[in-house]
Amino acid sequence: MDKENELGFLSQMFDTLYLFPEELEDIEIPEEELDQLNTTGDEQEIKEKKTSPTPVVATPIKKAIKKQLPTDYYGENKRYITIFIEHSGVDIFRSKEFQLLLKIIGALQLTLQEVAVINVLEQKDNLPKLIEKLSPQYYLYFINKNESPLSSESVPKYVPTEIDGKPAVAADSLTKLLLDVEKKRDLWMALKTLFEI
Rank of each mutant, 00 (worst) to 15 (best):
M1G: 12
M1W: 06
D2F: 12
N5W: 14
E6W: 15
E6N: 14
E6P: 00
L7T: 03
L7C: 04
F9Y: 09
L10C: 04
S11T: 13
Q12N: 10
Q12Y: 09
L17V: 12
P21S: 07
E22K: 12
E25R: 13
D26T: 11
E28W: 01
D35C: 11
Q36P: 01
N38V: 11
T40F: 10
D42M: 09
D42E: 15
E43F: 12
E43S: 12
E45I: 14
K47P: 00
E48W: 08
K49S: 14
K49Q: 12
K49V: 09
K50Y: 13
S52I: 01
T54I: 15
T54G: 04
P55E: 10
P55C: 05
V56D: 11
V57Y: 06
V57N: 08
T59W: 03
T59I: 15
I61N: 01
A64P: 02
I65Q: 09
I65C: 07
K66V: 11
K67R: 12
P70M: 08
E76P: 00
E76S: 09
N77K: 09
N77Y: 10
K78T: 11
Y80E: 12
I81Q: 06
T82L: 15
I83V: 15
F84E: 04
F84M: 12
F84I: 08
H87E: 10
F93T: 00
F93W: 10
R94L: 08
S95P: 08
S95G: 06
S95R: 09
E97P: 03
F98G: 04
F98W: 11
L100A: 04
L101A: 03
L102W: 01
K103R: 13
K103W: 05
E114Q: 15
A116Y: 11
V117F: 06
V117E: 04
N119R: 08
L121I: 08
D125S: 15
N126R: 13
P128D: 03
P128C: 05
K129H: 10
L130R: 06
I131W: 01
I131Y: 03
L134Y: 03
S135G: 02
S135W: 05
L140G: 00
F142K: 03
K145W: 02
E147L: 10
S148I: 07
S148Y: 07
L150T: 01
V155K: 02
V155M: 14
V155E: 02
K157I: 07
T161E: 08
E162R: 07
E162C: 02
P167Q: 06
A168D: 04
A168F: 08
V169I: 08
A170T: 05
L174I: 10
T175K: 14
T175M: 13
T175G: 03
L177I: 06
L177E: 03
L178N: 04
L178F: 08
L179S: 07
L179P: 00
V181I: 14
K184S: 15
K184D: 03
D186F: 07
D186Y: 13
T193Q: 14
T193G: 04
E196R: 15
I197Y: 09
I197G: 06
